[in-house]
């Protein structure tokens, strides 16, 4: 299971990006973050890339995206099963 979960699907711009960014940058090695969003957070990707984080995003259905974020040095065990 991801160590943290964050549902930003009800938030207005620009709160989702700020909250995800804050939680993602605080991740430690071995930790992961699962994010639920109504849109694919494209603006976030350059931030994650620069921070050495990895992510995977899936559109579960229209209007529901799930993203898993983790530190590059420690992929989460649930990577395959969760996302």
């Amino acid at each position: 299971m991801p160590t943290q979960e964050l549902d930003v699907s009800d938030l207005e711009p620009c709160e989702p990006l700020q909250r995800i960014r804050c939680a993602a940058l605080a991740l430690k090695s071995g930790e992961s973050l699962r994010v639920i969003h109504r849109r694919e957070p494209m603006l976030l990707y350059p931030v994650l890339e620069k921070a050495g984080l990895r992510w995977r995003t899936l559109e579960r259905r229209e209007g529901r995206f799930e993203m898993l974020v983790w530190r590059a040095d420690a992929p989460p065990a649930e990577l395959e099963s969760e996302i």
């Binding site: 207005e12 711009p13 620009c14 709160e15 990006l17 700020q18 960014r21 804050c22 940058l25 603006l43 350059p46 931030v47 620069k50 921070a51």
Partner: peptide, 25 residues
């Protein structure tokens, strides 16, 4: 306000310095 925030975010990204919390819209 969205455009102002958007450009501030880009600036933070360019500097890779997120220590300052940006003002909301």
């Amino acid at each position: 306000p969205f455009l102002c925030w958007f450009h501030l975010h880009n600036r933070q990204l360019a500097l890779f310095d997120f220590s300052r919390s940006l003002p909301s819209m």
